[in-house]
Design a protein around this nucleic acid. Structure first.
Lengths: 229, 229
DNA sequence: CGTATGGTTGAGGTAATTCAACCTGTGTGG
DNA sequence: CCACACAGGTTGAATTACCTCAACCATACG
C-alpha cells in the first residue's frame, strides 16, 4: 500500500519518526508504504544492495549472520519501533528475517536520507536509537562472556517475557516463545539439545512450566533472575 | 589545555568532526580541550553522570563491563578516531579505560549536543560512526558464537596486527600486544590460561613467534587467517 | 496412514575451565 | 648488591560443561 496512515500505527509514539512534527511525518509517510511479512520471510538479505530501510510496527525480526560453514548466528532481535536497514554501507551485511508475522513501514533509502537531511530531529532520533542498539549488542556480548548455558537460557526467557508483556517494567508470566529451539540455540551460541535440556531442567526445578513446544509459564521469576547472574 | 589545535591532529580527516567545515570545526575546537591518559587510567566510569564526550586521537581504549561477581568483560576496543561517551543515556553504563598512553579530545556533552543541532553534518557523521560500531559489536557476537579458543585468539591477533599497522589493508608483521593476557582473556571470553596455551600452540605451530610477553611476530598470516574460520 | 518437522533424551567424547605449582622479570628495601 | 616480594605469565593434571551423534517421541499434514 502506497502511503502510510500513521494514525493507526502502534509505534507512532516510540519509533524514530515520532521525533517529527505531525506535518513533517505526514510528508514522510506519503513516501513510504507498509507491508506484512509472514514467519520465515526474508525482508533483507545479506549482500543485497541496500536501497530500502524500514521501521517495524508489529511482530518480531531477527538479524542474522551465516558463517562460511553455513551455520547461522542470530545477532539481534528487532522489536516493534525498531529500525532496520543500513544508511551507510553500500551492501547489507546481515540477513533480516521475520520470526513472526510482522508489519513494516518501508522507505526508499534515498527518501529517508533526504528526510534526515531535512529534519535534524530525525537524525537525532536515529542516533539515539542506534546508541540503544549498540548498548543491546554489548549487553549480548557481556552475556556471551561468562554465562553458563543455564544463565543464557534464563536471561533469554526473561527478555522474551519482558518483550511479550506490554508493560516495560516486569515480564509476562505466561507467553509463547516466538522462536523455536534452533533459533534459541543460534541466538545464544548453544546447540538445540543444550537448550532443550536447560528448559527441561528449569521445568523440573519448578521455575517454569511448559505447555507444548512454545508455551512458557514463569513460576518463579526471582529464581530465574538469580540464574542469570 | 583549553582549545584544540586541529591542524596537528592525527585523526583530523577520519574522526566525526572531519565532517565539519574548517571554520565550523575551529569553533567547536575552541570549546574542547585535549588530555593525555596513562595506561590503566579510567576516562569514564560506569555509573557516572555523563557530561562529557570525546574523540580518541591516539592510543587505545577499552570499554568494559563488570558483572556482579566483579568479573570484567571487555565489550569493545576503541581505536583512534573513535568516539566515546553516550549522548543520550543519563548515566554511563560501561567503564572506559586507557590500554596504552592515549590522547583524547574532550568536549562538554552540552557543547557537543549543541554542535550536533547546529551542524547536521556532524550528526550524520556520528550516525555513520555509530552504525560502524554496531557492526563491530555484532561481528564480535558472531565471533563469540561458534569459534574455538584457537579461532578467537587468531582473530584477535589479526585484528591487533591490523590496528598496529598504519595501512588498513594488511596487518603489521611485527608488533607489541597492547593488552596483557588477562585483558585478552576478558575480551575473548576465555581464561588467561587458555589464551596462554593458544599462543603457545601458535608458536610451536610456527605461525607466530613471541618475544617477551608482549612482542608478536606473525610468521604465517595466511595460516592465522585460516584458523579464524 | 505415512512422512516430515520440531523436540526430547541418552551415551560418550572433548575442549576449555579450574586449581595448583612454577617460572620470569622488575622493583624495593636491607 | 643481593634478597625478597610481587605481578604477569606458563605449564600440568583433573574436572566439567557442553557438544556430537544417535535414537526416539509428538504433532501436524497431505
Amino acid at each position: 500500500m502506497r502511503g502510510i496512515d500513521c494514525s493507526v500505527c502502534a509505534v507512532r509514539d516510540s519509533a524514530a519518526c515520532a521525533a517529527l512534527l505531525p506535518a513533517e511525518r505526514q510528508e514522510l509517510a506519503r513516501a513510504g508504504h507498509t507491508r506484512t511479512y509472514q514467519r520465515g520471510e526474508t525482508i533483507f538479505a545479506a549482500g543485497d544492495r541496500q536501497d530500502v530501510c524500514a521501521t517495524l510496527t508489529s511482530g518480531l525480526l531477527k538479524i542474522s549472520h551465516f558463517d562460511e560453514d553455513g551455520h547461522e548466528r542470530i545477532l539481534s532481535l528487532v522489536h516493534p519501533a525498531g529500525f532496520v536497514g543500513e544508511m551507510f554501507a553500500p551492501m547489507l551485511r546481515h540477513d533480516v528475517v521475520a520470526l513472526t508475522e510482522s508489519r513494516l513501514c518501508l522507505f526508499a533509502r534515498s527518501e529517508y536520507e533526504a528526510a534526515i537531511e531535512r529534519h535534524p530531529a530525525l537524525a537525532h532520533a536515529l542516533l539515539r536509537r542506534s546508541a540503544e542498539e549498540l548498548y543491546d549488542a554489548r549487553a549480548q556480548i557481556a552475556l556471551d562472556a561468562k554465562r553458563s548455558a543455564t544463565g543464557k537460557v534464563a536471561s533469554l526467557l526473561l527478555s522474551l517475557a519482558r518483550a511479550a508483556s506490554r508493560s516495560s517494567c516486569h515480564g509476562a508470566a505466561l507467553f509463547d516463545l516466538p522462536l523455536n529451539r534452533g533459533e534459541m540455540a543460534t541466538l545464544l551460541g548453544l546447540t538445540i539439545e543444550t537448550v532443550s535440556r536447560q528448559l527441561g531442567r528449569l521445568e523440573t526445578g519448578g521455575i517454569i512450566r511448559r505447555s507444548g513446544a512454545r508455551g512458557i509459564q514463569v513460576l518463579d521469576a526471582a529464581r530465574l533472575e538469580d540464574l542469570t547472574a
